[in-house]
Every structure is written in structure tokens, then in C-alpha cells.
């Protein structure tokens, strides 16, 4: 659990973060989102003390971070940045071994850990351990950066716009991979982005900040999209928040209309979201879409089903 208690960061007369109070629970992914320059990076870097707060305290599991040795603290927290910052003179394996080496783990343990992590990120050691960062694609580099941050199995992972410099297709893949990874490793993740869609997709909860590090709203993605608390939030969410919210609701969680008679011509896979379902409804000639799993039709989704499902989960 990470607790921000009235944290302030000033640079001269300008306030980068203004009395931020925030509690991040163990094992949840919290996204800090907001326009450029609103204090996201500053807030993140205050957690591992790359930046020291001017006022207030940040504690991890109720212990003030200032009471830790700063290097011990950082070794216990994974850190991933947009430019990745892999060591160009070291191989993938050496990069991933960085924190275990700093912690003086025995050699065998380091090697086993590196192999485990490279498997986890889908770059098996046999083919990739000896490669240099310059030989990797942008996406591969970012995955190695994540593996390196997970090196000594930290409880907390800090990520600062990690996918910001990646092309949209690879980014989507990396986002999905992070979701998969998180199901396996269950870290407390603090993730910074300026992209609300990324925030809504990845976050268990989203903290929306405005200029000067003012916390505008801290809520689940569903709550945020359905009930923006201020004009700033509404504007930041942009067009069609409810339609975007449909992408968060799996079809499998929706009460379907039973199939009565012939199955509809149009269909959607049961593994999709309500947004996929809506797409199919609009595509269909009669507004009725069959939800299929393999060659079985589980039920029918139409505009009413979608609306009531989105109402209920508000």
C-alpha cells in the first residue's frame, strides 16, 4: 500500500504537485493520468525518491519512505520509463540481472531468475539472453525494461509512460501483455500516461490530475466515465465516454436474451466486449446479434440489452 499524505512539490514559486493525498492498495493498478505538465512524473518519482517532496509524506505499508536508505528503497521498487534506459553496453541478460546483482544474489539464483523473467515477457533466454539492446525492436526493448524492473521481484512497479514511444499496434499488444503479466505477478502498479483510453483500459483505478498536480477524481474507470466529477474531468474524457466505457464490459458478464427460434444472421464472439456487441448490432439488418462460443449460440444481444447492462454497472 502506497499512501500520499498531503504531498507538495514546489520548484521555486511554481507548484508541480499540490497537496496530493492518495491511497494505492496492494496489488492494484493505479493510473495517474492528466494533461502534459500536470505533475504525473513528479508524483511518480517522489515514490522512489528520485524527487524529494517539499512537504507531506509518502509511505509504503505505513512506513515513511524517508526512513529507508534511498538505494535500498529503490532496489525494492521496479521502475520503467518511456525511453527504457537499458544499459547499451550490456546484454539483455545482464540488464535484467541489474538489481539482483546489486543485491548480491548468488550467481545461480540470478541466472535462474533472469531465465524466468525472459520467459515471462516472451523473450526466451536461449534466443535473447545474449542480444544487445541495440539489436532489439522498440517493443522488445520495452519488454526487457519491464523484466529488468521485475528483477528482484519487487512488490511495487512504477511505470512512466512506458508505451508512449511505441507505435499503436505494438502498444496495444504491450498493453494486453501488461494486463496478462499483472494477472500472473499481482504487483502494486503505479502507471503514468496522458492517454485516457490507456488509463481506462489498464487501470483498476484512475487518478485524474489537472495542472499543478490537483487530484480531480480518483475512481474506477467505470465510475470515472459514468460520473465525471468536474467540468475538467468531462473535458478530459472527451467525446463519447459511455460508448468507450462499453469496451470495459465483457459480454460474458451481461444478461442475454434467450434464443427463441432462429439464430440471428449477425454474430459476435462471447469473448468480446459490449463495444464489439454494439458494433455488430449496428452492422446487423434487424438489430439482433447472436453471441456465439464455438458453434454454439449462447443468447441474443440487442440495443436494449446493451443499455440495461451499461446502466446496471454504473
Amino acid at each position: 500500500m502506497i499512501t500520499f499524505d498531503r504531498v507538495v512539490k514546489r520548484y521555486g514559486n511554481s507548484v508541480a504537485v499540490d497537496h496530493l493525498s492518495l491511497q494505492i492498495k496492494s496489488g492494484e493498478t493505479v493510473i495517474l493520468v492528466g494533461p502534459s505538465g500536470c505533475g504525473k512524473t513528479t508524483s511518480l518519482k517522489m515514490i522512489n525518491r528520485l524527487i524529494e517532496p517539499t512537504e507531506g509524506t509518502i509511505s509504503i505499508d505505513d512506513r515513511d519512505t524517508r526512513t529507508y536508505d534511498v538505494n535500498d528503497l529503490r532496489r525494492s521498487i521496479g521502475y520503467v520509463i518511456q525511453q527504457v534506459g537499458l544499459f547499451p553496453h550490456q546484454t539483455v541478460a545482464e540488464n535484467v540481472a541489474t538489481v539482483p546483482r546489486l543485491l548480491k544474489w548468488p550467481k545461480q539464483r540470478i541466472q535462474a531468475r533472469v531465465e524466468e523473467l525472459l520467459d515471462l515477457i516472451g523473450l526466451p533466454a536461449a534466443q535473447h539472453a545474449k542480444r544487445l539492446p541495440s539489436e532489439l525492436s522498440g517493443g522488445e526493448r520495452q519488454r526487457v525494461g519491464v523484466a529488468r524492473a521485475l528483477g528482484a521481484d519487487p512488490n511495487i512497479l512504477l511505470m512512466d509512460e512506458p508505451f508512449g514511444a511505441i507505435d499503436p499496434i505494438a502498444r496495444e499488444r504491450l498493453q494486453n501483455e501488461l494486463l496478462r503479466l499483472q494477472r500472473v505477478v499481482r504487483k502494486t502498479i503505479v502507471f503514468v500516461t496522458h492517454d485516457i483510453d490507456e488509463a481506462v483500459k489498464l487501470g483498476d483505478r484512475v487518478a485524474l490530475l489537472s495542472k499543478g498536480g490537483v487530484l480531480e477524481q480518483f475512481a474506477t474507470p467505470e465510475e470515472l466515465l459514468a460520473h465525471p466529477q468536474s467540468k475538467f474531468v468531462t473535458e478530459f474524457l472527451g467525446e463519447g465516454p459511455l460508448v468507450r466505457r462499453l469496451a470495459l464490459i465483457p459480454i460474458s458478464e451481461v444478461a442475454l436474451t434467450p434464443v427463441n427460434g432462429a439464430a440471428p444472421a449477425e454474430s459476435v464472439d462471447a469473448g468480446g466486449t459490449l463495444r464489439d456487441a454494439l458494433d455488430a448490432v449496428l452492422r446487423s439488418s434487424d438489430g439482433r446479434v447472436g453471441v456465439v462460443k464455438g458453434d454454439q449460440t449462447l443468447g441474443i444481444v440487442d440495443a436494449d440489452v446493451i443499455r440495461s447492462a451499461s446502466m446496471r454497472s454504473r
Binding site: L50, N71, R74, I81, V84, G85, F87, P88, T98, V99
Partner: peptide, 11 residues
Amino acid sequence: AVVESARGMGM
């Protein structure tokens, strides 16, 4: 970025 990530990892 390389230096920052090094410091961030506790070097």
C-alpha cells in the same frame, strides 16, 4: 535515460 534508470534501480 540510462543514468536515470540506473539511479532508479538503486545504484
